[in-house]
């Protein structure tokens, strides 16, 4: 959590994709119909990591008595964030989720934006191992954490 963020925190944008790459990634994300339906935005991205966020919306609520967002909407944000981190790899031409495990540590505070940050921590010829953390305004206490594996479809000519 806070510790791992210190250890392998986000590279600066200067060391990441560059303005053109970020724009391409943003266009890609915004073309995904379900990402649009959830209002997911791409906030920051670099090589092998991505940060996406989703605003609170009454339609995404799981428990109307508390106004807490449904776990399924958090899953959708986490899956999109992990997939974006995979696509930010220079050799990636496409990806699909193989498996995704999510731990819900606490309810997200109603009306606060949820930000997810995913990073690829191991890449093989055809599989990428990704982990992600989701936080609301209290960035020190994650709402949820995820680990997943994703397929890696390599761009033609990219070294295996």
């Amino acid at each position: 959590m806070a510790q791992s963020q210190d250890g392998d925190g986000p590279p600066t944008l200067a060391g990441g994709l560059g303005a053109a790459g970020i724009e391409a990634a943003r266009r890609f994300i915004e073309r995904v119909p379900h990402g649009r339906a959830l209002g997911i935005t791409l906030d920051r991205v670099g090589e092998g990591w991505a940060e996406l966020s989703m605003g609170w919306d009454a339609r995404f609520v799981g428990d109307p008595r508390t106004g807490v967002i449904h776990g399924g909407a958090v899953s959708a944000l986490m899956d999109t964030c992990c997939g974006t981190a995979v696509l930010s790899l220079p050799e990636a031409a496409g990806t699909a989720t193989i498996d995704l495990r999510i731990d819900y540590m606490r309810p997200a505070t109603p009306r606060e934006r949820i930000t997810a940050r995913a990073e690829c921590y191991h890449v093989t010829r055809s599989v990428v191992f990704v982990r992600a953390t989701a936080c609301d305004a209290d960035a020190d206490r994650p709402v949820a954490m995820a680990t997943g594996t994703f397929t890696l479809e390599r761009a033609a000519g990219a070294p295996a």
Binding site: P33, H34, R36, G71, G72, A73, S75, A96, L100, I102
Partner: peptide
């Protein structure tokens, strides 16, 4: 259409699938 995650195939969004299973 709003459930699509990959517009090229097209395929249902993995997050939608996860949410459907969880619900």
């Amino acid at each position: 259409d709003s459930l699509i995650g990959n517009p090229i195939l097209p395929a249902i969004h993995g997050g939608v699938t996860a949410a459907f299973l969880e619900v």
